[in-house]
């Protein structure tokens, strides 16, 4: 079980609990604003872009090559960027805070 906090563009903070699946699916299932997950999580659409809180990068790990290839062509991306369809929910990421890019 992991608690994940999403901070949206209008500064709303939503904390959700999940046990498995991707962070993107959890967010979409609860209608978190700015996370659309259009492609369903196959890493084709970049509509699940989040910024990981600096202190939480250790928990989520770095972006994979396929993500960075995509993110390097996103003008808003920085070193804290992840596509959250590629973050699997597990105990290891309990307590992370993600700021929604869009």
């Amino acid at each position: 079980m992991a608690q994940i906090t999403f901070v949206t563009s209008d500064n709303d903070s939503i904390t959700l609990e999940g046990t498995s699946g991707s962070v993107m699916s959890l967010a979409v299932g609860h209608g978190v604003k700015g996370i659309d997950g259009d492609c369903g999580g196959v890493c084709s659409c970049a509509t699940c872009h989040v910024f990981v809180a600096p202190g939480d990068l250790e928990k989520t790990g770095p972006a994979s090559e396929i993500e960075t290839d995509m993110l390097e062509l996103d003008d808003n991306a920085n070193e804290f960027s992840r596509l959250c369809c590629q973050i699997e929910i597990s105990d290891a990421i309990d307590g992370i805070v993600l700021t929604v890019a869009k």
Binding site: V42, S44, C45, I66, L73
Partner: peptide, 24 residues
């Protein structure tokens, strides 16, 4: 069930397909 599929079938970047949600 291809898991990682960074296809550009709906285009890419600013001009990606506006109708993609409907098409999907």
């Amino acid at each position: 069930d291809r898991k990682i599929n960074p296809h550009v079938g709906f285009g890419f970047s600013h001009h990606n397909c506006l109708g993609a949600t409907h098409a999907r």
